[in-house]
Amino acid sequence: MKFLCLFALTAAVGISVVALAPAQAQETRIFVDGLGHEVEIPVKPKRIVSLRGEQFTAPLVEMGAPIVASVGDVVEGVNDGRPVIRGAYELFHTTFENSDIAFVGTTHQPDVEAIAALKPDLILVPDFAAENYSRYSVVAPTVVIKIWSNPARERYRRIADATGMLDAFERLANLYDFRLGEARHLIEEEGIDAQDIVVAVAEVNGKRLRVFKHYDAMTAVLSDLGFSRPEVVDGLNGERLDLSPEQLQSIDGDFLVSSYSERRFSGPSELRANWDNLIPGWDAFLHAPRHNQHILIPREIMRALSFRALEEVLAIYMSNIVTRKFVPFED
């Protein structure tokens, strides 16, 4: 009997000690963020808050990171007027309603108190919103990521590194590299010299004709496949250049690529109407649209920082450029 009592007492004390012991502190490490802050962050964060949809939330969803909250935007005609997570909504149909991700305000003015209420252990902030860094950092370790830095893959790796998701990143990167390798192999087999194919990425927005050297997945995949750009784009120091409509000829090439918005009032037909308004007769003047070689890509999907976006754009280029007969551009 005495033995039984002693055993019960020991077991009870043991269980109490285990139950009452404070949760083991998370293992931490020092991370130097995009603005040079040395931040002590958990090695494996469990409650991540993202303050940018297509740049942070989309890749975090893709990697399966434990994200508890994100900013969102209310866009007319999308998701019945409820806030959407840009990029994650279009790529993965991730919404605040069908996931455990809480809405903590809009991209440009998140609700810091709503973030605090979720007790996060890591907050990812884009550099343009870092003016509020001191307020976020009193709530949780806060890491600033430069969202316009290139190459995009390095940016993605930084996000994966900060959130302890490097394994998932490597797995996704390997898959994309495999598909890219297959695509390059096919190009070689078809006897195509990618360098000989000139592809211009250009859009008309209002009164502007704009050409791009860097525009997320749209240009990243073109570079990955080894296609050439028009000279005027190649010589660019920045990411983009506004051209006069009179310089239209300088972007002529085998293919023309533009992005259209999946949202209301700015779809493919509006995109063509924009070109018509600024440069009447553009589709007869430029080689690519004249020969039905103008490729349109959905913007929100293409802009999301993700390997899924790269793969989708890769598939579009493969079917529109590599695997079909086209009329080559001659100077």
């Binding site: 440009h108 003015q109 343009f128 509020n132 001191s134 307020r135 316009w148 983009r240």
Partner: peptide, 26 residues
């Protein structure tokens, strides 16, 4: 604002709206 990059213009517009959301003790 019209000719600037859209993301940057949005950021500028956010500042132009006027707010004390960045207020800290400093």
């Amino acid at each position: 604002l019209t000719y600037g990059q859209i993301n940057l213009a949005m950021e500028a517009l956010s500042w132009l709206a006027g707010s004390v959301h960045t207020a800290s003790w400093k």
